[in-house]
Amino acid sequence: MRAATYHGPGDIRVESVPDPELESSKGAIVRVTHTAICGSDLWFYRGESDRDVPSRVGHEPMGIVEEVGEDVVSVEQGDRASAPFLVSCGRCEFCRKGLHTSCVNGDGWGGENGGAQSEYVRCPEADGTLVRVPDRHADDEETLRSLLPLTDVMGTGHHAAVNAGVEAGATCAVVGDGAVGLCGVLAARRLGAERIIALGHHEDRLAIAEEFGATDVVTARGEEAIEEVRELTGGGVNHVLEAVGASSAMETAAGIARPGGTVGYVGVPHGMGDGLDLGPFFSDNVTLSGGVAPVRAYAEELMADVLQGTLDPSPVFTKTVDLDGVPEGYRAMDERDAIKVLVKP
C-alpha cells in the first residue's frame, strides 16, 4: 500500500510500504477513506519532538472495514467506522473508567498498524476502538466530514470543556485558536455556556470561533490579554479551556481564572522550559484538571449530536488533499495556510 512516511524534519514522503495484516482474532483491517493532519503532527515535522526515521504517520482514521477477526462483534466487513487517535480494548480497568488513553492493551496507529495517513490500517482491538457509522449515514460525505473531527480534535475540545466544569449559563474562556481550541468553543456552547471568550491571534480562526459560539474574542498576548479578559468579566472566569500546551498559554489560563475556578487543559505540554509555576494555581485555589483526551469515551455521545444535525465541527477543515498531497498539507499547516487538513486517500 501507499503511506505517508516521516524521513526527518520537513520531509514527509508518500511511498510504498507493506500492507498491514490481521494477526489477532480481536482485530480488523480498515481501508482508509478519510483521515487528517493534526497540529501535534507538526512537532516532529518541525523537529521539536523525536520520531523514528523512517516511520509512518497519522492517527485519525475513518474508513471501510475490510476484514475482521473471528471474535469481533461490533463491526462487520463493509461497515463504515471511525477510530480515535489511540487504540483501546474497551474491557480493561481504565477503559471501563472512561480512560481509554490509559488502556493496558492500548496501541498507536504507526508501525505495523500502518499509520492513518495511508490506504489501510490495522486495528488490533476492533471492539474497543472502532465506532460504527450507521448505514443511513455511511455514504453521506457532509456527515462524514462532520464525524471525522470526533477522532481527535472535537473529542479533545470536549474533554477540555468537561474538565473545566462548563455548564449551562457559564462564562468561560478558551486559550488557543487551533483546531482543538475552536472545538473547545463548540463544546462549551454545546454544554450551555452563556458567554465564551476566545483568545487567539489569527483573524480567520477567530472568525470560526465566533461561528462556533464565541461571544467575545481577545487578540492580545501575555499580560495584556489577561487584563483584557479580567476587564471584560469583572475579574476573570470560572472555567478556562487551555488548548495549546505552551507555558505562556498555561500562564494566561492561570491569570484569567477567578479564585476557585478551574482550568481544563488538553494542550500537550511542550516548551515548558523550567516547568510550570504552580504558584498562581495555589494562591487562588485554581483547580488544574485534564490531560490526554479519552475521545473514545465521548464518541457515541458526540456522534449522536452530529447525526441529528446539532453539532458540526467540520469548518476546522480548511484544506483537502489526496494521499499524494499529504506533504503539501503538512507545509500548509506549518505555515498557517490551513487550520486542519482533511486527507482523502
Rank of each mutant, 00 (worst) to 15 (best):
G114N: 08
S55W: 11
V17S: 12
T5V: 15
L307H: 13
I29G: 05
E119P: 09
V32I: 15
L342I: 05
T219L: 01
E227Y: 09
S248L: 08
G78K: 12
G271F: 09
Q77W: 07
D41N: 09
Y265C: 05
E142H: 14
S118L: 11
D177V: 01
L130I: 11
E194Y: 04
N238D: 15
A83G: 11
A243V: 03
E328Q: 13
T33F: 02
E242P: 13
G176P: 01
A4C: 12
D52E: 15
V68Y: 06
I29Q: 14
S82V: 11
L99S: 04
H59L: 10
A293D: 10
A170T: 08
I12Q: 08
G213H: 08
S88E: 10
E301K: 15
E76Y: 06
D127K: 14
P259L: 14
L199G: 01
E119Q: 15
V229T: 06
V343S: 03
V341F: 04
E328L: 03
D140H: 04
G236D: 12
E112Y: 09
L148N: 02
N285I: 03
L147A: 09
I29R: 10
G165F: 09
P149F: 13
H158W: 15
R205H: 14
A83N: 06
V30Y: 10
E48N: 13
D274Y: 00
K97W: 12
G260P: 03
S88Q: 07
P315L: 11
A188R: 03
A332M: 12
S314R: 02
F317S: 01
Y6L: 04
D284C: 02
G261E: 01
Y265Q: 09
A126G: 02
M154E: 14
E328N: 06
P20D: 13
V341D: 01
G236Q: 12
P124F: 09
G200C: 01
T171Y: 02
L199A: 04
G222P: 03
H59K: 10
M250W: 15
R145G: 05
L42T: 05
F85D: 02
G115K: 10
G192L: 01
A188S: 14
C89D: 15
